[in-house]
């Protein structure tokens, strides 16, 4: 898997990405602190691959995805998409780059304008970025509806008349309208039934093969990420703690947090489910506005050491293609 990707072109390159949301307080509403939603995150996405991002709620997955698309103004860091640095571009200049990168949203109900018919929703990116005539646009909308498996008769209907799975297909068709190269899927299956989840994920995979898409697939469903992703990044409290090819990560998780996360995946077999040796984390996630000094995970880590409370571990490559931010591996490196 990963061996093939090394010589491939990097489509999206993120380095040192920070996204802080200011907190204002006091009588004069002064700037009293920041919610460090994404704190110094770096990764590359190769053309045609799927990078899965997993982590628990509130760890900054979605913010990271949105920041990569510049739906926020970044606090620091650079984002290169298709060779262009978009990290400091104004929204006007960004508009020209938008067709390359699109997004599929988490809540298919909320991400569709309830007052627009399906044809208008799917056609909106075309209206914004192309000069197609009405008939050409209609044909393109029909093509897109075919591509995601929606009946052409639905073109005049409104979002509330569809089921969750169909709505997510509308969202996907809309994201595909401008032939993008890169799509951020922000938990596209979290709001769907399990049976529909499989359909949507298969659809995403088929479309990837057909159009050569690159995905940033954000999810908290570990088994789904295992199914769709080529490489997986694990986030905890705004930072990537581990980034590794899928097989390696699921077979041999390095970071204690990844180990805990993977051991929490439910087991279908009731016997192994009951006897499984699980690592159960204690305590709560610290507040992202006041993260602990040293390693972010030091408050809950089962293998915490003295150095963890003082120094923030560096995010480094411990094996070819495997990045981990943990002092355990720094030591083994120096020792061995």
């Amino acid at each position: 898997m990963f061996d093939n990707t090394t010589d491939r072109r990097v489509l999206v390159s993120v380095s040192g990405l920070k996204m802080y949301f200011p907190i204002f307080g006091g009588i004069l509403s002064r700037h009293v602190g920041d919610v460090k939603a994404v704190d110094d995150v770096s990764f590359d996405i190769y053309e045609g691959e799927t990078l899965g991002v997993v982590g628990e709620s509130g760890c900054g997955k979605s913010t990271c995805g949105r920041a990569v698309l510049r739906l926020y103004d970044l606090t620091a860091g650079t984002v290169m998409v298709d060779g262009t640095d978009i990290s400091t571009m104004g929204q006007g200049a960004l508009r020209k780059i938008r067709p390359v990168m699109q997004m599929v949203f988490q809540d298919p109900q909320a991400c569709l304008n309830p007052r627009m018919s399906l044809a208008d929703i799917i056609g909106e990116p075309l209206v914004e970025h192309t000069r197609l005539s009405k008939a050409e646009r209609r044909d393109r909308v029909y093509d897109l509806m075919d591509a995601v498996g929606l009946n052409r008769d639905f073109a005049n209907r409104y979002p509330h008349e569809f089921s969750g799975g169909q709505r997510q297909r509308i969202g996907i068709a809309r994201a595909l309208a401008l032939n993008p190269k890169f799509i951020v899927c922000d938990e596209p299956i979290a709001a769907l039934d399990v049976s529909i989840q499989a359909q949507v994920v298969n659809l995403l995979e088929d479309l990837q093969k057909e159009f050569g898409l690159t995905y940033l697939f954000i999810s908290h469903d570990l088994s789904m990420v295992r199914h769709i992703a080529d490489r997986v990044a694990v986030m905890y409290l705004g930072k990537i703690v581990e980034l590794a090819p899928r097989e390696g990560l699921y077979r041999d998780p390095k970071h204690p947090y990844t180990q805990a996360l993977l051991s929490a995946v439910p087991e279908p077999d009731p016997v192994t489910h009951d006897t499984a040796n699980r690592t159960v984390l204690k305590g709560d996630v610290p507040s992202p506005s006041n993260p602990p000094t040293g390693c972010n995970f030091c408050t809950r880590c089962p293998r915490v050491m003295e150095i963890c409370r003082q120094q923030d571990p560096e995010f480094r490559e411990v094996e070819p293609g495997r990045f981990v931010a943990c002092h355990l591996f720094n030591e083994s490196e120096t020792a061995g």
Partner: peptide, 20 residues
Amino acid sequence: REFVLAARSIGTPPHRMVLR
């Protein structure tokens, strides 16, 4: 609402965002 964010993600300028 998310559909406004969705419109922003395709680069809709503010005046059209308001009108549409």
